[in-house]
């Protein structure tokens, strides 16, 4: 359903991502792994419109979405989270979620000012969807909390929840368990599995090998901005280039 074609991103002449192509299939969990600074987040940012690729193309369902702004790409069915947990930390949990549903509604200036019947319907719809997601995240009793009152893990859950509000068909998660302990990581892993079981395609960036080997259907490995391997967890585990990248590093430099 998703296709990246020869994506390249230069920062001041230095290639953060270089000629990377890959595909994401409907219903799978695809992991993107690689050492620090390999270009994973940069790749994500090109897929979601945050960065314009220096060259290369991005397709969703066969449509070219290269260069679209992030808020437009969301409407194509792709939602994302950020590496550093990104929330609306001045607002309550429920508000955070409802914002994520706005683009699906016709909740604009005039509707809101005049409280049209359409406004009422959409407002209720957004609220119900937020309740549904709260339930799914296990945060129902925290709906009125402000963000700083949540634990690290709850914040990470909420970040995923915000992305899910708009019913994306594909979810991009940038290190959703970064900084969490084993137990918490396991819980987030189960959450991601449940998301996939609902039929949402998942693309995930991770560092935690053990977790990713158990979770992913396929893995793409980046090193120094280049794709060095792609395959099933088993294939990746025994891939010579990957082992070198993770152990030696300097070999390719």
């Amino acid at each position: 359903m998703f296709l990246a074609k020869s994506l390249t991103k230069l920062f001041d002449g230095l290639a953060a991502v270089q000629d990377v192509s890959f595909e994401i299939k409907q219903g799978e969990i695809l992991a993107i792994i690689g050492p620090n600074g390999a270009g994973k987040s940069t790749l994500f940012n090109m897929m979601t419109g945050t960065f314009k690729p220096t060259s290369g193309l991005v397709f969703m369902d066969g449509h070219n979405i290269t260069g679209l702004k992030p808020y437009r790409i969301v409407t194509k069915g792709m939602a994302r989270t950020f590496q550093t947990t990104s929330l609306f930390d001045q607002l309550r949990v429920i508000d955070n979620l409802m914002i994520g549903y706005k683009w699906r509604t016709g909740l604009g200036f005039w509707n809101t000012l005049l409280h049209t019947p359409k406004w009422k319907a959409y407002q209720t719809e957004a609220f119900l969807r937020a309740m549904e997601i709260l339930e799914f995240l296990g945060l129902t009793d925290k709906s009125e909390f402000f963000i700083p009152a949540l634990s690290q893990e709850e914040q990470k859950r909420l970040a995923i929840g915000i992305a899910m509000m708009g019913k994306p068909r594909m979810l991009l998660l940038d290190e959703p368990t970064g900084g969490l302990i084993q137990e918490e990581t396991d819980r987030i892993t189960r959450l991601i599995q449940r998301i996939r079981d609902q039929g949402t395609t998942v693309c995930i960036i991770e560092h935690k090998m053990q977790m990713i080997m158990g979770l992913a259907d396929r893995i793409v490995v980046l090193n120094y901005g280049k794709k060095i391997a792609e395959g099933s967890p088993e294939e990746i585990k025994s891939n010579q280039a990957v082992i070198e990248a993770y152990l030696g590093g300097e070999v390719h430099a």
Binding site: T50, Q90, G100
Partner: peptide, 12 residues
């Protein structure tokens, strides 16, 4: 509060 996130969740 967070313009980048707002953008990423579909707000122009």
């Amino acid at each position: 509060n967070n313009e980048a996130l707002a953008d990423a969740v579909g707000i122009n």
